[in-house]
Computed example of a mutant assay.
Amino acid sequence: MKMLSVPLLVVGLLLCAQGFAATPAQQAQQDKMKACNTDPQSKGLTKDAHNAFMSNCLKATPAAAAAPEKKLTPQQQKMKDCNADPKSKGLTKDQRNAFMSTCLKS
């Protein structure tokens, strides 16, 4: 029985440890928090000034991290083009449905 409990304990610990691993998004957020937090500490800001600085810093998205625009498939581009026209014309639900149907078939 002792021989079986040790491997089960090890497997259980491994499964529990997976829940504590940071995802890439969490890791990126943690890195951003560290980067934002080093600046106000070196400046010696007060509590309110520190909070305002942290809020602005965490809201800011770096230009390098901005995702490049995804290339649309031909079907997605067609949907985008067809969808723009009824919005500009202010069509009602039934009119819009009829327009979209004919636009997407062509």
Rank of each mutant, 00 (worst) to 15 (best):
F53V: 00
L8C: 09
A67K: 01
T61H: 08
M54F: 02
P74A: 02
L15A: 14
A25H: 12
P24Q: 09
A52V: 08
V11K: 00
K105R: 13
Q26Y: 04
L58P: 02
P68T: 10
Q41I: 15
F53C: 02
Q26K: 04
V10F: 00
D94F: 06
F20E: 12
K59G: 06
K34H: 15
G44E: 08
L8H: 08
H50E: 14
M100S: 00
D39M: 13
L13K: 03
F99C: 07
N51W: 07
K89G: 01
Q95E: 04
D31I: 04
N97S: 07
D81E: 15
N37K: 14
A22E: 14
D85V: 00
K105C: 09
L8F: 07
K80C: 05
S5V: 15
Q76T: 11
S106G: 14
Q30R: 07
T73C: 00
V6L: 14
Q27R: 01
M100E: 05
K71E: 12
A65T: 13
M1Q: 14
A49S: 11
V6C: 10
A35H: 05
D39S: 10
C57A: 09
N37W: 09
K105F: 01
H50M: 13
D48P: 08
A35I: 02
L72R: 01
K59N: 11
G19W: 01
Q29L: 09
A66S: 10
Q77A: 11
L104W: 01
A22G: 13
M1W: 14
Q18H: 12
P40D: 06
A98W: 05
F53A: 10
A64L: 07
Q27S: 04
L58V: 05
L8N: 09
L45V: 00
A21F: 05
Q75A: 15
L8K: 13
M33E: 14
T102S: 10
M100G: 04
T38S: 12
L4W: 11
V10Q: 06
Q75P: 08
A21K: 03
V11C: 06
K71H: 12
F20M: 11
P7W: 13
K89L: 03
G44R: 08
D81Y: 02
N51C: 02
Q27G: 04
Q95H: 00
A22T: 14
L91Q: 08
Q76P: 05
P40V: 01
T46D: 15
T102N: 02
P86Q: 02
F99R: 06
P24W: 10
L72N: 02
S106E: 14
S42Q: 15
Q41Y: 09
M79F: 10
P86G: 04
A66E: 05
S5E: 13
L91M: 03
G44S: 15
M33N: 12
T73P: 01
M100R: 00
